[in-house]
Design a protein around this nucleic acid. Structure first.
Lengths: 196, 196, 196, 196
DNA sequence: GATGAATGAGCTTTCATTCAT
DNA sequence: GATGAATGAAAGCTCATTCAT
């Protein structure tokens, strides 16, 4: 499986370089050097610089989705599920600091330039949250007036903002677990029906 | 007031152009044309391209802070204050769609490249939230175990993610008021002590 | 005599700035600042940047010619005259280091760009040497086979090369007097008829 | 020999263009066009515009030194050696009019701007003269009171001034041989001990 | 498939010159 | 006469992309 070999080498190199310098400041030759291939070789696997970013994005988000879905597979309690999602999302940061930085960028910047590109993978990823919320509502745990379509964004946004903070600041003020707990706590507390 | 005139014309043009094309894809000549000045004129008011972005950022965030603080001045109830903050933040989007897009960008991208730049204005802006939360805790309304330093980021992130969604999608699924209400609701519900 | 006042202020400022940064690297605004006038004012007295250089050159060489001719006025011995010329030429360096550097430049570079400009003043200056040599030949002191038209250039070139060396090196190896003596000595020795 | 091929093509083109327009007025695109390569190609072989000039200078002076030393190899008489040096130096002019003009420029202008660059090659070239003078003194032909360190500069300056004259004026008044002879004659006459 | 030398469009920035005040 | 803000052409340099080997 020669081909996917090179493809992956380039993708991984691109993650590093984009994270280090940002998409616009990254040069193709940087990626080529990091991947230990010739500049021209990259164009055998990708159409252009943007294509690397999108391709990378789809690939990596895809992997993450598989992983999260696996983690949630054996869990049925929506509250626990949200906690798992939060913890895993923040875990990504620790484990794949570089990748996260690139996704941060991709999510914001690039759509502007690649109008035709609809990041369906990303939508699939955050829809996991709305599915959990929906399930919680159906089972009677979560408040009915809450809109899953908004909550999914709010939850993701809250987590994401924290990871952004970490990726920028040298020494985080809060630990990963603490943050995951606080955020899922506030959302769960906010979602859950009161007893009285 | 010749000087501040041109300065402002350029700033406003830059907001438009950066929003339209993104910082990296925006050309100085685009901004110049939009501002109806010569390319060189821009360099009489700004040191370089980055300087336009930072300058613009500081200026605009400054104005927003003044505005929000004014709105909160006569309100003492932390719950109401959070609602006001949320509503106003989302309002920015409607009123200044372009500006928001640029700030989005600035908040994420630029720090990478202008390491020395510390966006103190932005910190001042989100610290308004932690101040409200802190006040709520001191007055006994909000749960003590919640950390204002995390909540401020989560709250901002939640709102911000929504605005990002809007700035990208053609037709928003939710109205501004609906969104503001949902998000402040979930946070307030999550923050507030239960009676029992 | 307002006009010549400003004209002179600008000329003197230009000498300083050209010497410091070279003609091409000197900015009009540098000269304006040095002369404590507005940029635009310079264009009331000079047609363009080149014009400043040429004008400066003509003016300053003119003054030097007057000065040298004055020094030679009361001297009739061609040998002494050559020594005076050499000493005075090198003296310029010490006294007007900056001016000399600019002249160095002008003599070489600029003619290329201002084709129409014939530096008649400079020719007048070195013709003093050929006149001395010619006089020496007529009076029977100097060898007849020597060509004044070549000697004038060689003599000037020899002196000039020394001054260039000085203007570039931090600490000259030889004193001014020593150099003037050595050079006029070698030329005089070379020019003078042998007794036998 | 692909690489040195392009390098040389660019160097030769640069000589022509610098000679034609001067270093500052020469555009990279002029050189590129002259060399029949793309603008960007130049930057594969040189770091920047200055680098072309310095590189060119070092290369060409290097070749000249080799050539002159070869010519002097079989000659032991200092007087003859000086004549050879003079003749060869002036010959350069005829053969490589353009190169000489560029070197003229380099010798004067550039050091100002490229302070860190010490043109060691050039020093090596003129040190050939002081070595000859020194040898002549040791062998008792030349006067002891003459300082080789001054003479080398004076001799070079004299020759150089002549070549400058030629490179500027359309029709030289003197032939090459005539000039070489006159100048070495005056120096030799000036250097040599008198019989009485 | 792989290479990397070559390309050249494109962009930021500078600065001589102008001209309304 | 004097000013200096404004102009805009011009140029060095970068780098995504191509293509001959």
């Amino acid at each position: 499986m020669r081909v996917s070999d090179k493809h992956q080498k380039i993708t991984q190199a691109a993650v590093k370089v984009f994270a280090r310098k940002g998409f616009f400041n990254a040069r193709i030759s940087d990626i080529a050097k990091e991947a230990k291939v010739a500049d021209g070789t990259i164009y055998l696997y990708f159409n252009n610089k943007y294509d690397i970013l999108i391709s990378l994005f789809e690939d990596e988000i895809g992997k993450i989705i598989v992983k999260v879905k696996l983690l949630l597979e054996n869990e049925t309690d929506p509250q626990k599920m949200l906690q798992i999602y939060a913890l895993h999302h923040l875990n990504l940061l620790q484990e794949q600091k570089e990748l996260v930085e690139v996704l941060q960028m991709e999510l914001r910047q690039s759509n502007k330039f690649i109008k035709e590109y609809r990041n369906t993978k990303f939508i699939e990823y955050i829809d996991i949250v709305s599915d959990i919320v929906h399930k919680g509502q159906q089972e009677g745990h979560f408040r009915q007036e809450v809109k899953p379509g908004i909550i999914k964004r709010a939850f993701f946004g809250a987590l994401d903002e924290m990871s952004r903070l970490w990726s920028l600041s040298a020494k985080p003020h809060y630990t990963l677990e603490e943050t995951a707990e606080q955020i899922s706590d506030i959302f769960l507390y906010g979602l859950t029906k009161r007893d009285n």
